[in-house]
Design a binder for these strands. Structure first.
Lengths: 175, 175
DNA sequence: CAGTATCCTGTCCGATACTG
DNA sequence: CAGTATCGGACAGGATACTG
């Protein structure tokens, strides 16, 4: 990315975006969750130019989302398999998937997530495993953590002040 | 975006990326969840160039994530507040957040999500509300939905065939 | 099958200056 | 405070040709 370097930034969202912020990266991972591993299968399914595919795959290997593995000597053939980190990212893609299906499927859902055990469609939600509650609304908030810097703390304090001045009824509306 | 037009594509992930696929969009929304609504507050917190901020805000309003609202006549002053759709996207950002904290916080978490009722840190997971199970592993799969086109179905069938030939032990590994 | 090599275009983004 | 206007650079992404 050609913008400001965010590697120094503490926000995990910004950090994450630096690894997989590109358009194709997400789509490649999406197909990886389908079980796709081969270069040509990616290329064909995604309709992506081969040089771009090379670049994105290389990057994904670099940041530890995929592993380039030789599955055949003579001739040497490689495939791209998910690492633990890459597999763990599936929850993000599925959250995205669920949101997309909720908001951009006026003509019906073309693809759905199912539970193969029950056979039913699943509409996944983000929950707190400790309480079982759905994570939404003002109850859940992002605050400085144990490794917070002074900058973070002061930024957060500034926000709190602004909140005092005008209660954000706007945000709480959505239950 | 200067790449292939995906608006015709049925995948909700691709569709979603078209709305908020840009780098700053996600970060702007992240700050909106903090309660930020004003142009200058966004600019200062994000360190973004004003023209870029204008572009991204405009886009986010266009796609229905934010609403531009006049909060003062004489002089006219505007603020950007989350719509339902924008608020709903928070689960995606939080999934991203959680993943980032799991994988890129070697020196400790600078920010954390907390439950303000219990006061405890929350590590949210994606679950199926119907069964209460965590959505992960091969049990959950994406398949053609009710509005699937022939293209989707045949692509899916093709994948199934490939799966028969080589069971993807790779993907199931990760439990 | 799994890429590499080249060339080109669009646009994301930053920097800076200016305005009601 | 909330932007607009203009400029330039970097790179994502596309198209195409070629290789072991």
């Amino acid at each position: 990315m050609q913008h400001t370097d965010f590697s120094s930034m503490p926000c995990p969202v910004a950090r994450g975006l630096e690894q997989v912020g590109e358009w194709w990266s997400i789509l490649i991972l999406r197909d990886a969750y389908y079980g796709v591993t081969r270069f040509d299968e990616f290329r064909e399914r995604l309709g992506i130019a081969p040089n771009m595919l090379t670049r994105r795959l290389k990057k994904l290997v670099e940041v530890g989302m995929l592993e380039r593995r030789c599955y055949n000597q003579h001739p040497p053939r490689y495939e791209y398999v998910l690492t633990d980190r890459g597999r763990d990212f599936r929850s993000v893609v599925l959250a995205f998937f669920a949101w997309g299906n909720r908001h951009f499927a006026e003509e019906g859902r073309a693809v759905i997530l199912i539970d193969t055990v029950t056979g039913k469609e699943v509409e996944p939600v983000l929950t707190d495993p400790a309480t079982g509650n759905v994570v939404e609304g003002l109850r859940y908030r992002v605050v400085p953590g144990p490794a917070a810097t002074d900058v973070i703390r002061s930024r957060h304090a500034k926000l709190e002040q602004a909140r005092q001045r005008s209660l954000p009824a706007d945000f709480s509306q959505g239950k």
